[in-house]
Design a protein around this nucleic acid. Structure first.
Lengths: 104, 104
DNA sequence: TGATTATATAATTGATTAATTATATATTTA
DNA sequence: TAAATATATAATTAATCAATTATATAATCA
């Protein structure tokens, strides 16, 4: 019971960050590569990479390399207590459709 | 949309802490005073007080003073995206029933 | 009123962590 | 194979934050 609370707290720490929550909101719409995420958000590439690594380590996102590009997608089946958070994220459709896609 | 994500991240930071999550799990069972919480968890009184203050400032818990004692209760209606978290907290019934209640 | 109990606040300390800068690895293409 | 592009990792720095210690406030009771 104590372990469960500890695990929940550790998982929630991952979501309790503006940058990672933005990445999650984007990936909820569709899978994206790192360069898409940096273009949409304006964050640096190393910064995006580090946050994605943490999310992947916790099983929140899945990774798949295709050629030069590494695509990330959201794994919504991972933690049931995260569902209501995913559900209440704002839509990122507009930001994604504004993608120039100059990298991939 | 950016503001919403920022607000969500700030709110989630409150829950992303083992100590506060434990307090929330306890208050989900029933309202408790500060001395109950310190007795059940073994945390220090100033520590409990500080965490409760943060939770109250965010509207996560309600406060009511009755005599010497200040009772806290969980405000589950506050943030809809926290519902699934509250739902998946482990039961604290056993710990609460083991209360000696030597303070209040 | 003075002592006791319950709770809150303030100051300090140590640990955690996000972002940046610099560099390394991996894949593709000329 | 060399150059270019995409991504990852490492090291550093600055900021945030939890817990402790010490002290203050508030309510009750003798």
């Amino acid at each position: 019971m104590d372990d469960h609370i500890y695990d929940m707290a550790e998982s929630l720490k991952l979501l309790a960050d503006k940058t990672r929550l933005t990445i999650i909101a984007l990936l909820k719409e569709q899978e994206l590569c790192v360069c898409d995420i940096t273009e949409i958000t304006g964050m640096s590439q190393p910064n995006a990479s580090q946050h994605l690594r943490k999310l992947k380590a916790a099983g929140v996102v899945n990774e798949s390399r295709r050629g030069q590009w590494v695509y990330y997608s959201l794994n919504t089946t991972n933690k049931p207590y995260m569902e209501c958070i995913y559900e209440h994220l704002p839509s990122m459709k507009e930001k994604i459709s504004a993608l120039k896609g100059s990298c991939c």
